[in-house]
């Protein structure tokens, strides 16, 4: 564990708390892509299936439990509790275009052709692009509530912070994980446009609005 990874994980935790807070205080999941949230459940379940056979640490254990539980809870909030506030007509990204390639890529590019190893690889590839339905929705509506942009910023910061973590691990532990690194770079890259608007508008006190 190093500081970058810890800050990344805390940022990830914060993003989830921000999202739950947004849904509960506004009593609405307006502006949140159900598809992206469903993809995150898929990602966490596929990756953290190793809770059953791999012990890393108490920290790792509780974080995994938290990520699975909170992502399922968010789906519940969206699907049942605040269902009327979700508008499927603007959440129309075709998730099969993400899940399909992630399955194929994980079957080709993996460290070992084993079921749980392929599930791990699949979860890494899928996570890299899971934010796309959300960003697509943002693009479509052209605006977002400020709290939603804080959620996205914290989520983007999480993967961005993993990059210095990998550089640090390369020099201190001689560990290189090419699959995680390539996917992580792609994932962080997807946030660049968003970050630009977030820093130049939201953090200057303006509303998040995309140019028409």
């Amino acid at each position: 564990m190093n500081l970058f990874r810890l800050l990344g994980d805390l940022s990830h935790l914060a993003s989830i708390f921000i999202l739950i807070h947004k849904i509960q205080t506004t009593r609405s999941c307006r502006g949140i892509s159900f598809q992206t949230q469903a993809l995150y459940v898929t990602v966490f379940v596929a990756r953290y299936i190793d809770l059953f056979f791999r012990w890393i640490s108490l920290y790792n254990f509780f974080m995994k439990i938290f990520f699975i539980a909170s992502s399922v809870y968010i789906l519940y909030l969206m699907k049942y509790r605040y269902r009327p506030t979700h508008d499927p007509s603007i959440d129309t990204f075709k998730v099969e275009y993400l899940v399909g390639p992630a399955v194929v890529l994980s079957l080709i590019f993996n460290y070992k052709f084993e079921f749980t190893e392929i599930l791990w690889t699949f979860s890494i590839y899928l996570e890299a692009v899971a934010i796309l339905p959300q960003l697509f929705m943002l693009q479509r509506t052209g605006e977002a509530e400020t709290i939603t942009t804080h959620y996205l910023a914290a989520l983007g910061a999480y993967r961005a912070l993993y990059i210095p973590n990998w550089i640090y691990r390369y020099f201190t532990e001689d560990v290189v994980d090419p699959i995680a690194i390539v996917a992580g770079l792609v994932q962080t890259g997807l946030y660049l446009d968003f970050f630009y608007v977030y820093f130049t508008k939201v953090l200057q006190g303006q509303k998040f609005e995309l140019p028409a």
């Binding site: 990874r5 994980d9 990830h12 190793d50 791999r54 890393i56 790792n60 974080m63 995994k64 990520f67 460290y111 070992k112 190893e117 791990w120 993993y162 973590n165 560990v175 994980d177 699959i179 995680a180």
Partner: peptide, 10 residues
């Protein structure tokens, strides 16, 4: 398993 990455990240 020496040649497989440890997967110790979240």
């Amino acid at each position: 398993d020496g040649n497989v990455i440890a997967h110790d990240e979240l």
